[in-house]
Structure formats: structure tokens, C-alpha cells
Amino acid sequence: MPVVSVENLQKRFKDHLVIKGVTFTLGDQRCTALLGPNGAGKTTIIRMLSGLLKPSSGTINFRDAQKGGDFRRLIGYLPQHPVFYEWMTGREFLEYAGELAGLTKKEARERTEELLELLGLREAAKKRISKYSGGMRQRLGIAQALIHRPPLLLLDEPVSALDPIGRREILELLKELKKQSAVLFSTHILNDAEEVSDEILFLHEGEIVEAGTMDELRQKYRQAKIDIVLAGKMDIFLSGVAGGEFIETRLIDGNQATFFVTDVEEAKQAFLQVIVAHRLPLIKFEISKTSLEDVFMKVVRS
């Protein structure tokens, strides 16, 4: 049974339907990426799961929620821009967060030290948070989300504000974290999603337009692609290959052409024959596969 099941979730702000009915589940030991361009509704969905926003309709069911119990106990939440009490030190804030989450003073203290170590904040633990850099704040934000070992982690853009090194570290950390919790993180960067997530939810204008495991999506959208660049005489080439049944789609831009083809071998032979026969000035001939990036762009642009 999944840790959380979300069914037909909608959110309306005034007259504007921001989330148009999304359904998904989050499983144990799985890292799910909520991927979409800015304004797609990623933050709204995460905030509804965290209880900070009330859904306009639809249901959210937590597997471990007890009747009358507080489901917030099950959640670790990192907002997009984590904010702290600036006058506290990093250590104080973590201990405070731990105690608020229901740990005893002793547990909170021990867990704080663990997390300071894990997130590389040991040096900064005694400093006031007002002196923290953006990267340190992000780490502290992740630490406070982890403090009570919640079965569900909701991370809103955990790596978007980090430099490449910090980003790498946090992505590695996410891989570790999913061993203990279900993780949902939002991002607008495909590479990040591709790297650590088991499952991707493509969100666009408040709807999940595509979802599945990485492998499923790759299989589904894997398609052979041939890029050709000529120095000129593109029209001769195009008329030469016109009518090839293996061509599914083609994108022409001046002397560059991209073909999505069903049969690479056949296409390759046909294209090269035309080029040789007409002595066309070939600059580039590349065979490749479509990536998720292409899928992402296609989804977002359509």
C-alpha cells in the first residue's frame, strides 16, 4: 500500500482553477519527481499534501495516519524558500524543530548532531542563522525536514537554489533518504529528476500530463532521430527523400533538418544514397535517440 494516495485533487484560488484534478500515489522507498515548468502548480500540490493549503476537492490519504491523529507527524517539509528564526543558531533551530515534531529533548539533541554532520553544517552550528548563506539555509531546511525521520518527505525545489557542488551533494543525499522514506520533490530541471527519481510526474498547467517510472517513459518516448546539416541544396535533399515511409515527423530549419524515424537502418541508407547521388555538401549526419528532454519540451510546448 502506498504511503500516500492522492485522488482527483483540485485547488481553486478565487475563480482560477490552479490544480485541475491530479491523481497519484507515493510509494515506500521511492523517490518521485514532480517535474514541470514554473507556474505549473508544483508548489500548490506540495503545500496541499503538507496541510498548509486545503484542497478545494479531492482526497489525500496517508497510510499511517491514525484516526484522530495528527498527520503532520508523518511529514517532513522543505518549502521553496525556507525561513527560520534568524536570531537562533542552526543547532538551536534544529533542536527546536525536533521537539516540536514530538522528539524528547534528548532525542532532539542527538538527532540534531547527526543531521548537522550529515548536511555538513557542523562548523556553522553555533552561528546565528542570520549569518547563513543561501546554500547553508537550504541544508538547514532539509535537516529540519528530516529531524523526526518522517515516512514522507516533501521537498519543494530542494536543489534549484544550490551551486553545482551543493546540488550534487543533495542529489546524492536524496538517493540515501529514499531508503527510509517516500520522497516527493519538485523541480523544473529535468536532469535532476532523471538522476535520482524512480518515478516522474510531469505537471503542466495544473494537470499531470505524463507519469511513470523513468524506464517506462524512456521506452515510451524512445524514438530514433536523425539530424542532418548541409551547406546548401537542402531542397534537393528534401525532394530526394520525400515519400519515405519511415519518416514520422520532420523539422526543417534552413539547412538543418531533424527526422524522427521508425526504422533507422532504412532511413540511414535512403538518406545517404540521396546525398551521394546528388553530391550534396554534407556537414553533419547524426543518429541518436530522443531523450526525456525532448519529451519535456514537447509536453510543455504542446
Binding site: 496541510g51 503532520r72 511529514i75 517539509y77 518549502p79 525556507p82 527560520f84 528564526y85 516540536l100
Partner: peptide, 13 residues
Amino acid sequence: KSGVAEMVLVKPV
């Protein structure tokens, strides 16, 4: 306004 209430009240408080 600062958003820190969000950080606190997302905990079981």
C-alpha cells in the same frame, strides 16, 4: 509574513 509560521505549523503543533 516571513513564512516562518509555515515552518512551525507544518510540524504537529
